[in-house]
Amino acid sequence: MNLRMHEQLSEIWDDFEQDEDIWVGVLTGAGDRSFSVGQDLRELAERNRAGIIRPSTFGSRGAVGWPRLTERFSLAKPLVARVNGYALGGGFELALACDIVVAAEHAVFALPEVKRGLVAGAGGVFRMTSQLPFKTALGYLLTGREFSAQRGYELGLVSEVVPAEDLDACVDRWVEDLVQCAPLAVRATKEAALRSANLPVEQAFATRYVWEERRMHSEDALEGPRAFAEKRPPRWQGK
């Protein structure tokens, strides 16, 4: 991922957020060798040599492509990561920022930044320690060790692992399940789950959720029970 790619991806995420005809996104890489192997270190080294880059740390504020996916904390639409091959460094951080991760059996995950004098600054440090047992997360963060798709599934980072030839069909099933649900209800659920993750239950109940307010007053909130009573599939409007 070079600076131009970050710039292009930012435009895509803007479109994804704003287009109400799009209810779910699937993020994947081209081919079967890698999902993404992260930052273009050759470009970084060249910029360092030219003296045209400031030292980097956590986050991308002020950098090209901000806010990047890993910092779009209010993105309520569901994202599925289709991981076919290596998901390393910033590539793995993209997958961690998705809601559902479907991986081919040969997929490999790692945050090897410490081996390059860097840190997993696109949220890897934070998301790994919040999504895994703390010592397990530290083991991978401090060593840059790789782990398999099956290990990722066992740890709860991967939603489903399938043979490479079944990957597309598996992703399609997840997408089909998502689009059968009311889009505002999906977004409200995602928002509430993310925002309440580290809150006491009492405080979670008392927190204001923007997408839940939209869902609560939407036509879809009436359509769901009505369709059930009339024994027909619901016709979601997403508004």
Rank of each mutant, 00 (worst) to 15 (best):
M1A: 07
R4M: 09
M5A: 11
W13R: 03
W13A: 10
F16C: 02
E17F: 03
D19T: 08
D19K: 09
D19Y: 03
E20G: 01
V24H: 02
R33S: 09
S34H: 09
L44M: 12
R54M: 13
P55G: 05
P55N: 10
G59K: 13
S60Q: 08
A63K: 15
S74F: 15
L79H: 13
V80Q: 07
V80L: 10
A81S: 13
R82L: 15
R82W: 15
Y86L: 11
A87W: 02
G90T: 05
E93C: 09
L94K: 09
E105N: 14
A107N: 13
A110Q: 12
L111M: 14
L111N: 05
G117N: 12
G123W: 08
G123M: 09
V125N: 13
A137L: 12
G139P: 05
Y140H: 15
L141Y: 13
T143G: 06
T143R: 06
G144T: 05
R145M: 06
F147S: 09
S148T: 15
A149R: 06
G152R: 03
V158L: 10
S159E: 10
E160G: 03
V161M: 09
V162L: 07
A164D: 08
D166P: 03
L167D: 13
E176N: 02
E176A: 11
D177G: 02
L178E: 02
V186C: 06
V186G: 01
T189F: 13
A192C: 04
E202V: 08
R208N: 03
S218H: 01
E219A: 07
D220I: 00
E223Q: 02
R226S: 00
R226M: 00
R232N: 06
Q237V: 05
K239P: 01
